[in-house]
Amino acid sequence: MNDKPVLGLLTGDGAGVGPEIIAKLAVGKFFEQYCRPVVIGDVRILERAFSVIGSSVPLQVIGDVDEADWSKGLPILDQRDQDPEVVKFGTLTTEAGKANLNALKLGVALYKEKKIEGFCFAPLHKAGLKQAGSKVESEHHLLAQLFNHTEPFGEINVVGDLWTTRTTSHIPISEVSKNLTVESILRAVRLANTSLKTSGIAKPRLALAALNPHAGENGLCGREEIDVIIPAIEKAREMGIDATGPYPSDITFIKAFRGDFDGVVTMYHDQGQIALKLRGFDEGITIAGGLPAPIVTCAHGTAYDIAGTGVVKTSAFENAVKMASRMANHLRLQA
């Protein structure tokens, strides 16, 4: 059929919109434009999704990726682990949580065996993972663990062509300042730099957002710019990274969306999230940054409230597949 990258597609939580997204895109012949897809999930869940959207494609149930023949239908590694009777639309279950944990593990294992060149996962439910016994903070920590990864890792939010990483995330705003160090900022800078390079940008242009209004106005309203952000930028530049700033946060995103930068490193959660969500939440994706493999998901969640109705938009997951494909192609060139 083609020489495009072999990508795993994890259906995610069967109670959410993930299976419907994959079903819609399969019917629309989307995947073959970017990859050779291999679905990882429960056949019954995917078939339920086909019936929700009222259309389907032939499935080819396989036991090993080597058996996949894309001329015979959409290959699926049937996990038989999300019983539609148990995993009802809009219901949080341990069964789906367990299935999602296993799917992530399988995805990483297949990547290590070089059977797939990366994967995209449809929305899963964090609480479901916890219920299923996952002890780590998020799926990104789990993935890093599976790769025995010690370098910086973490989620990278992408809307359009703009990548953002965060220095701090889910902590009180009053604690952001004390968590900003040259090291913590550099970690976010390196994460953005490494991952952008994986996507094929040779020398990413990174902007660092300031912490305080008007970038602190030379210390008049806050000293973090002088004490840690500027030293971090200098250090990054010594490392050969094209980092500039700190820019006042309200200006950073205007410049970034105008195309002045490839990535923005933010100091706290909402600094980036406010801008990205206004720009186009429907389109956003999240990259498991820093890891050796292209692993991408859509920024939106399981959307339990509309699961099973077929109204879900597929644009974010489309972008996730495009990005994983782009990254996999670039890794091939480097190999």
Binding site: D270, I274, A275, L278
Partner: peptide, 26 residues
């Protein structure tokens, strides 16, 4: 801000300078 923009509210009370300035300038 997204919801205000979509018409849910007429005005937003922001807690700090950049929280309100980022969306407005964008």
């Amino acid at each position: 801000f997204l919801k205000a923009l979509q018409g849910s509210w007429d005005i937003v009370v922001a807690m700090y300078h950049d929280q309100g300035h980022i969306p407005l300038k964008m």
